[in-house]
């Protein structure tokens, strides 16, 4: 069991390492170092800057040193909680991000919850009633959900809300709460707004998960242990509900680890379309304005969040599947 946990954790750290290198590369890639980019921008906007300041910055980040050393310095700062400064906003990155990170996490996790709540019951129904009308409808909707990029779904829903409900489905807060400090009422307002992004983000994953659940349950339904369960006098419903459904949950749980990165990933685009106060819009604007320090930090944070999510889903899988707990897999 511990070997499994250790292995998954090591893989997570390794993933994070890869993401950090890419983030660093993104910061480094634009021609010239970011200080000169920043200075050029500052000069453009009319702000006076001293060469001293530039030299100080360069020395601080070791920009005159070997690239590996630079990465080390950057990583060391990140590990101490210093994500650097956004040159566009003239503020520390963490301040720019503010409560966008927790909101991003909230949106992604709610999308995952929505996915599971929708997909598992429908998948089970589809498998138990194979080839019924409901099964065919579920299969068709699943395909449609899979084929619709989530940001298009967001666009269409926005338009539908605007046209028929005459409300704006965008954002996570009503206007009066958008800049207000946190309160119970604001939290309630958040919960009212949460379903739309959760549904938009969760649909594609749900479609995928319905297919996974259905296929696995269909396989498990044919296993001899189901016959054993029926042969000992269990009703059909309980024989299927207790055994194959439970066994089929293992591959479903392990596919959550694959779904989660997609949700975090998709959230970036969807939050731009739905103008959510999450990481996505900031990432996009930072990229468009070449504020690479901010962008790199956001990519790293999103990566860390994803890795954490995948690791937690690994733990959930271990809890679900005794074969992993007992070191058989």
């Amino acid at each position: 069991m511990w070997a499994y946990i250790l292995r998954r954790a090591a893989l997570g750290v390794l993933t994070l390492f890869v993401i950090s290198i890419i983030s660093f590369a993104i910061i480094q890639l634009p021609p010239g170092d970011f200080v000169s980019t920043a200075l050029a921008e500052l000069a453009e906007s009319g702000t006076e800057t001293a060469d001293e300041f530039a030299a100080q910055l360069r020395a601080e980040y070791g920009l005159d040193r070997h690239i590996v050393v630079q990465y080390g310095i950057w990583m060391g700062r990140v590990l101490q909680g210093d994500l650097g400064t956004s040159f566009f906003h003239q503020k520390p990155v963490l301040e720019v991000i503010g409560d966008r990170l927790p909101l991003s996490m909230l949106v992604s996790v709610s999308a995952l919850v929505f996915t599971l709540l929708i997909a598992i019951p429908i998948g089970i129904y589809s498998a138990v009633r194979q080839y019924s009308a409901g099964d065919h409808i579920a299969t068709f909707l699943g395909f449609l959900g899979l084929a619709t990029p989530n940001f298009l779904l967001a666009l269409v829903m926005l338009y539908a809300g605007f046209l028929w409900l005459d409300v704006s489905l965008a954002g996570l807060f009503s206007v009066e709460y958008a800049t207000a400090p946190w309160s119970l009422a604001k939290l309630g307002d958040l919960l009212v707004h949460l379903p739309i992004p959760a549904i938009v983000l969760g649909t594609a994953g749900a479609a995928q998960l319905i297919r996974i659940t259905r296929a696995n349950l269909l396989d498990e339904k044919r296993q001899p242990y189901v016959t054993t369960a029926r042969a000992k006098g269990l009703s059909n419903r309980r024989a299927i509900g207790k055994y194959p459904v439970r066994v089929a949950m293992n591959p479903v749980a392990s596919s959550v680890g694959l779904l989660f990165p997609n949700i975090v990933s998709g959230a970036v685009i969807v939050s731009v379309v739905l103008s959510l106060p999450t990481m996505g819009p900031v990432l996009l604007s930072s990229l468009l304005s070449q504020d690479m320090y901010l962008a790199g930090a956001i990519i790293l944070l999103l990566g860390a969040f994803t890795v954490l999510g995948v690791f937690l889903s690994d733990l959930a899988l271990m809890w679900l599947d005794p074969r992993i707990r007992h070191g058989n897999l």
Binding site: Q223, P224, Y225, T227, T228, A229, R230, A231, K232, G233, L234, S235, N236, K242, Y243, R246, V247, N250, L320, D321, P322, R323
Partner: peptide, 30 residues
């Protein structure tokens, strides 16, 4: 087939042993 009587017969009156003991038990229940 799924009535109360048949279910009391299954297991109660007639027990069944399978060829494949590996797959005759659920792998995730003790």
């Amino acid at each position: 087939p799924n009535g109360k009587f048949m279910r009391s017969v299954r297991g109660g009156e007639i027990g069944l042993v399978f060829q494949e003991p590996m797959t005759s038990f659920s792998p995730v229940h003790t």
